[in-house]
């Protein structure tokens, strides 16, 4: 057994400071570009580039250290704890948006129509307004787009649910194959998962185009549009990131990385993917279905 004093403490590194510079350039640039600053846009693109470079460099170094056996099991455990709690923080981020959806449906929309302790709100301010969900007609439509319809749960979203659930299964298959030392099963499973992820994203993009072009359902469609697009949009972003991470894992698998009993990189991505899966289930139920 490896001694605990073997815990790997890396040497000083330039990657973090580069990451911070990239982050500041990206976000500061974004903020400036929101107010029509060309310099802002340039800085944003530059920052994005720096971050991508940093991620490649940093993660590349970690992969290298991992493959050369620098990490003992204790380091591995630190990574697990880190990834686990990082995913928990993501859960809480989504919780804020789910909370907003819950609040709008259960509280603010009924209140605007005069329910609860808001009799006068409905009576005096919004006499015309009716509380329904999905909320098509907002209390005051001047600044908002009134949608013609909404996305039905049992069409694309249902297919997408199936897609993601299947992708969870193929990823688990890849994992089992890895542990059985069945490399082609591992690679096949990963490829299937990536394909399913891409299909999901394609369908999601199609659905957005539908919504924007035919249904007039937009980010600006009042609280319904806001919660709909922010929740599905952030989820989609996570699927995108997850897919990219899966591709990285696939490449590593093809190069022969990961051992039967040591494959934290794989597992981290798998956890992430399952987390994205679970979030989707929540979305499907409360955003599309109910």
């Amino acid at each position: 057994m490896q001694s605990r004093s073997d815990y790997f403490v890396p040497d000083g590194s330039y990657w973090p400071i580069l990451g911070s510079i990239g982050m500041a350039a990206l976000l500061g640039g974004f903020a400036a570009s929101l107010h029509d600053s060309l310099v802002g846009t340039i800085s944003m693109i530059l920052g994005f580039g720096i971050i991508i470079f940093m991620l490649f460099g940093w993660i590349g170094q970690v992969i290298n250290e991992s493959e050369t056996g620098t990490y003992n099991l204790q380091v591995d455990k630190s990574f697990r704890i880190g990834m686990g709690w990082f995913i928990f923080s993501e859960v809480m981020f989504f919780a804020a948006f789910f909370g907003a959806l819950f609040y709008a449906r259960q509280l603010s929309v009924p209140w605007l129509a005069g329910e609860g302790n808001n009799f006068w709100t409905g009576e005096n301010l919004w006499p015309e307004f009716k509380s329904v969900w999905p909320l098509i007609k907002m209390p005051d439509t001047t600044n908002f787009t009134v949608p013609k319809g909404i996305i039905e749960a049992w069409e694309i979203p249902a297919i997408n649910t199936l897609t993601l659930l299947t992708s969870g299964a193929t990823l688990t298959y890849a994992h089992w194959s890895l542990m059985d030392e069945n490399r082609s099963g591992l690679i096949g499973g990963l490829i299937a998962t990536i394909i399913l992820g891409v299909i999901f994203l394609g369908l999601q993009a199609f659905e957005y185009i539908e919504a924007y072009q035919h249904l007039d359902l937009k980010l600006t469609s009042g609280i319904y549009g806001s919660t709909f697009f922010m929740l599905t949009g952030f989820h989609g972003l996570h699927v995108t990131l997850g897919t990219i991470m899966l591709i990285v894992i696939l490449m590593r698998a093809i190069r022969g990385h990961f051992k039967k009993d040591r494959h934290f990189g794989f597992e981290a991505v798998a956890w992430y993917w399952h987390f994205v899966d679970v979030v989707w289930l929540g979305l499907f139920i409360v955003v599309y279905w109910l």
Partner: peptide, 10 residues
């Protein structure tokens, strides 16, 4: 253009 905190949009 979202309306999380705007009553006019719900």
């Amino acid at each position: 253009g979202t309306s999380f905190f705007d009553a006019a949009g719900g």
